[in-house]
Design a protein around this nucleic acid. Structure first.
Ligand SMILES: [Zn+2]
Ligand SMILES: [Zn+2]
Ligand SMILES: [Zn+2]
Ligand SMILES: [Zn+2]
Ligand SMILES: [Zn+2]
Ligand SMILES: [Zn+2]
Length: 969
DNA sequence: GAGTTTGAAACT
DNA sequence: CAGTTTCAAACTC
């Protein structure tokens, strides 16, 4: 079933993609299972959040503790020199980088499975440990240069963003802001950050964003598992922090604190909006994750920062990013390089200080300023970065995807608007993931930022986050909030509707069409890095290069988007964290649809309203294949990080993998309300808006059961902005989304196709109540399907639930993702394996192939040709290949997994991610087209991967030689 | 678009 | 659990 979904979509894209490449999904969704290691990343804006943030941070820290044992802080400095702009770095297909951050949620989250951030490169790379790696331009030195101390750095003026890796590594992004620059970013209270965070600004030169591993405070966790695959996805998930401390929940904090924590409600109100809201949407296939953080918002885009002076800014502006890896496998501190984010346009920046300035995040001042909270979504076709409340950042390379950006800026007025940047990487099917960073309230930010900036360098925390576009940006017609989202260019996939929960309200966002055709993905994805490595040139690269960025206008943050937000104009990366008050238990929203599930943690952006506690709520968004999206809220309870992660991931994972139910189950608490368009439209619209989150669930509850049904009023609670929630029927959104697709260039096409929902079932005898039906299997309601006698809708809730139970009885894991990564870093594999007899596992009949993953030892296939080895090969070539299949498989699989981790150290991953982020930021500042941004991001990724691979290979070779020597001797 | 192929899901 | 049937997608023409 699963596969099917993808299949089609993929097909449209490319059939060609023969190989078992990794699918985005893989990257994206890495951890499907609970266990799946999830990587949690948390990014906190040190500065940003004010008090609230701080609180959160702490919580985070806690989580971290969980996740990451200790802080080790190695500081890694990442310098971006200049990235290669090599065009399409093909990069490794196989390598995917996933970063997931578990929600801070303290215990809760962590508990589950703290995931480890892993970066894996499928290809065998050796860990670079000792040697310095260069990623793209950035070099990572094993030892971190600067900073060790950094940790303690006083943030002072500088705002920093911290990212912790599960390992305990923390990354801070500081943006020294030039004064001007500061503006954008929400300065937020930079103040707060002060505490623990010490930012280390390494770069002497201009302002630099430093990533420092702070000690405690906010931590960003990068899950180790980063897979960079050709598909190259980088996922960073930030799990919501747990529930415990509610506040913290937002894992990712916008660096800039939201000034306003309080956000007001309205979503729109950005300015003050207390915390930034992060919304993340992921839809690999259709999955979306939003995270809103009320208070702090993260901005990923550089835009925000205004870099005042581009050129000048450079120095000053450039912020150096330092990443410290604490635990990391390698423990080593590596100074990666500095990434400079310049407010100023990149170019200038570059000149800057040494190399560093790769990124300039100049925020367009305007935007930043204006749109306080901007939400950014970065989509890259191939890569996605998702930041979810839980904070997930995924970068998946999408092949063709052009990035579309939809950003809806929500401006509520102007200010409020938030830019959301969604990065979607088309999953196989077209799953797109979004990363949104909503600068909530940023408006203030701008102002605030300034303040901060004022400080010396003011490192503005800008970090990634872009402030959302100013309202203006949002210009986009807000139309529907949702619509706005939809506006996003759709990239490929299906439309995704993202529910924003900023306030608690969830707003459906249309997914970007960015999706890249599977093919593309596949192409890109080639697993074996090694082989690939060499070939950057390979076509795949492009894909990687292609990033789609969508802007979602989330409405404003909290408020969302829906209304306001919708406008997405510019693509922004927004990570908004809505804070929902936890209080309302209801977090849950319902989402019925499992399909894509995204998690969003919501902090109480709205919080204002709600409880201060703002526990974090996590929402999982699920998109139905149709495009319907469902939100699942975790009631305040912090999800285990893992769990959260999972879902998120899972969601991303292949469409196939999706299993709403499972999801639900996992989440237990969560309720899923199906928000099908249909349902919604028909019944719900009204409800939905209001109830969506809240009520609807009633019926819907996904069977998952666990989630008991709670009516998820979440919205209400959280959202002040229910409005946003309004979402309208998904379809509309979808439609909207769809329309846009064209934007994306080439890839887009494929993607575009994807965009709409992947599939619509055509069941005739199962009533869509058996797993034969993809819709049902994905936990989605049939929408726009051509099925006959369909019972998979709200009109037959009873039957549907019964069917769900039946399926679960038969197979408790029926709704769980089929493809998961055993270990965080590991490449995804089909849990059960396929059983192909005649297709050689080279056709979409094969679930493995469909998922673009190689067959594993779990597979019982006969004559399998779907092995990792041949990533690059085309179908044809593959066909020609003799089979050696099984043996190969086993070998490959194992190999890949084993080695992958070695090479990808946290540091490396972080560095890579940072580089990518920096690019995004820069582009945002520059306002370069999304496509270009995506391209560059992908290129960056590809470049990094190549370097990593090259490095790994070299080492491996050397080692082998040595070994052989030894043997000989 | 009809018909065939395919392999998972369902059933025995 | 194996073998068979059912099913809907994937594929072919
Ligand atoms: Zn169906
Ligand atoms: Zn259907
Ligand atoms: Zn149906
Ligand atoms: Zn197979
Ligand atoms: Zn297989
Ligand atoms: Zn196989």
């Amino acid at each position: 079933m699963y596969t099917q979904r993808w299949r089609r979509s993929s097909e449209s894209l490319d059939d060609s993609t023969p190989l078992p490449e990794l699918s985005f999904e893989d990257f994206m969704e890495p951890t499907q299972d609970e266990t799946a290691t999830q990587h949690h990343m948390e990014i906190d804006a040190l500065d940003s959040d004010e008090g609230g943030a701080s609180g959160e941070e702490h919580s985070i820290s806690i989580n971290e503790s969980l996740n990451t044992p200790q802080f080790k802080r190695s500081v890694v400095t990442i310098l971006e020199d200049k990235r290669l702009r090599t065009p399409g770095p093909a990069v490794l297909k196989s390598h995917a980088i996933k970063v997931v951050t578990a929600g801070a949620g303290a215990g809760a989250v962590a508990p589950v499975k703290p995931q480890i951030t892993d970066i894996k490169i499928l290809n065998n790379f050796k860990p670079v440990s000792s040697n310095t790696m260069k990623i793209g331009n950035t070099t990572v030195a094993p030892t971190s240069s600067p900073g060790g101390t950094a940790k303690g750095m006083p943030l002072n003026s500088v705002t920093m963003t911290q990212i912790k890796t599960p390992d305990g590594k923390i990354l801070y992004l500081q943006k020294s802001m030039s004064a001007g620059a500061a503006a954008k970013q929400p300065v937020v209270t930079a103040s707060t950050p002060t505490t623990s965070k010490a930012a280390v600004t390494v770069s002497s030169g201009g302002a630099v964003h430093h990533l420092v591993a702070p000690a405690g405070l906010q931590k960003a966790i990068l899950s180790k598992a980063v897979n960079v695959g050709s598909t190259g996805l980088v996922k960073a998930a930030v799990p919501g922090k747990g529930g415990t401390s509610g506040s913290t929940p937002v894992t990712i904090k916008g660096i800039t604190p939201l000034a306003a924590k309080g956000v007001p409600s309205s979503a729109s109100s950005p300015t003050s909006a207390p915390a930034a809201k992060f919304q993340v949407v992921r839809s690999s296939d259709g999955k979306i994750i939003k995270i809103n953080k009320a208070s702090s918002s993260m901005i990923i885009n550089s835009k925000a920062t205004t870099a005042t002076t581009p050129g000048t800014g450079i120095n000053a502006a450039a912020s150096a990013l330092k990443m410290s890896l604490t635990a990391g496998n390698v423990a080593l501190r590596k100074s990666i390089g500095q990434v400079v984010i310049k407010a100023a346009p990149p170019k200038q920046a570059q000149s800057d200080v040494s190399n560093s300035a790769t990124l300039t995040t100049t925020t367009t001042g305007t935007s930043s300023s204006s749109a306080p909270p901007g939400k950014m979504l970065v989509q890259s076709t191939g890569k996605q970065i998702v930041v979810s409340s839980k904070n997930i950042i995924k970068l998946s390379p999408k092949p063709g995807a052009t990035s579309s950006i939809t950003n809806t800026s929500v401006s509520q007025g102007s200010s409020p608007t938030k830019g959301i940047h969604a990065v979607q990487i088309p999953g196989k099917g077209g799953v797109v993931q979004y990363v949104r960073v909503l600068p909530n309230t940023k408006e203030a930010a701008s102002s605030s930022s300034t303040s901060t900036s004022a400080k010396t360098n003011s490192t503005s925390k800008v970090t990634f986050v872009r402030s959302i576009m100013p309202a203006n940006a949002s210009t986009s017609s807000p139309t529907n909030a949702s619509s706005a989202a939809t506006k996003s260019q759709s990239v490929g996939n299906t439309n995704k509707i993202i529910m924003k929960t900023t306030g608690g309200s969830i707003v459906p966002l249309p997914s970007m069409q960015t999706l890249v055709s599977k093919r593309a993905l596949g192409a890109t994805n080639t697993r074996s890095p090694g082989s690939n490595s060499g070939n950057q040139e390979s076509p795949r690269k492009h894909r990687l290069t292609d990033l789609n960025i969508q802007h979602l206008s989330a409405g404003d943050d909290a408020s969302d988007s829906s209304e306001a937000g919708p406008e997405t104009k510019k693509p922004r990366f927004v990570i908004s964290v809505a804070q929902s008050s936890q209080q309302q238990p209801q977090h849950k929203q319902i989402v019925t649809r499992p399909s894509a599930i995204q998690r969003v943690t919501v902090q109480g952006a709205n919080s204002n309203k709600i409880a201060p506690n703002s526990a974090k709520k996590v929402y999982n968004l699920v998109q139905s294949a149709n495009g319907v999206k469902y939100m699942i809220c975790n009631s305040g309870v912090p999800q285990s990080s893992t769990s959260a992660m999972r879902r998120g991931y899972t969601g991303y994972v292949d469409s196939k993998t999706r299993r709403p139910l499972s999801m639900a189950a996992q989440q237990h608490r969560m309720q899923i309300a199906p928000t099908n368009l249909q349902a919604l439209q028909a019944q719900a619209k009204q409800r939905i808006r209001q109830q969506q989150l809240q009520n609807q669930p009633s019926a819907v509850q996904p069977k998952a059961a666990q989630a008991p049904v709670q009516p998820p009023p979440a919205n209400a609670n959280a959202n002040a902005n229910p409005q946003s929630a309004k979402i309208l029927p998904g379809k509309q959104l979808f439609e909207i989304l769809k329309s846009p697709p064209s934007d994306t260039p080439p890839a887009a096409d494929a993607l575009a196709g994807m965009t709409s929902r992947r599939k619509h079932c055509n069941c005739s005898k199962s009533q869509c109540l058996k797993l034969y039906c993809d819709c049902f299997a994905n936990g989605e309601f049939c929408q726009d399907c051509t099925c006959k006698d369909c019972f998979n809708n709200l009109d037959y809730e009873v039957e549907r639930e019964r069917a769900i139970r039946s399926c679960l009885e038969r197979n408790p894991s029926a709704f769980k993702p089929k493809i998961t990564a055993p270990n965080s870093g590991d490449m995804r594999l089909h849990n059960k394996g396929c059983n192909c007899k005649r297709s050689g596992c080279l056709k979409n009949y094969c679930e493995c192939y469909e998922a673009k993953i190689p067959c594993s030892n779990m597979c019982k296939c006969v004559g399998c040709r779907n092995m990792e080895d041949r990533p690059d090969m085309d179908m044809d070539s593959i066909d020609s290949l003799a089979d050696g299949e099984e043996s190969n498989k086993a070998r490959d699989d194992k190999k890949s997994q084993d080695d992958s981790d070695r090479y990808l150290t946290d540091d490396v991953v972080e560095a890579t991610i940072m580089c990518m982020i920096s690019r995004i930021v820069m582009h945002e500042k520059q306002n370069t087209s999304i496509e270009n941004t995506e391209r560059e991001v992908m290129e960056e990724l590809g470049e990094s991967l190549n370097q990593i691979i090259t490095f790994g290979k070299e080492k491996c070779d050397a080692n082998e030689l040595v070994d052989s020597m030894d043997l000989v001797s």
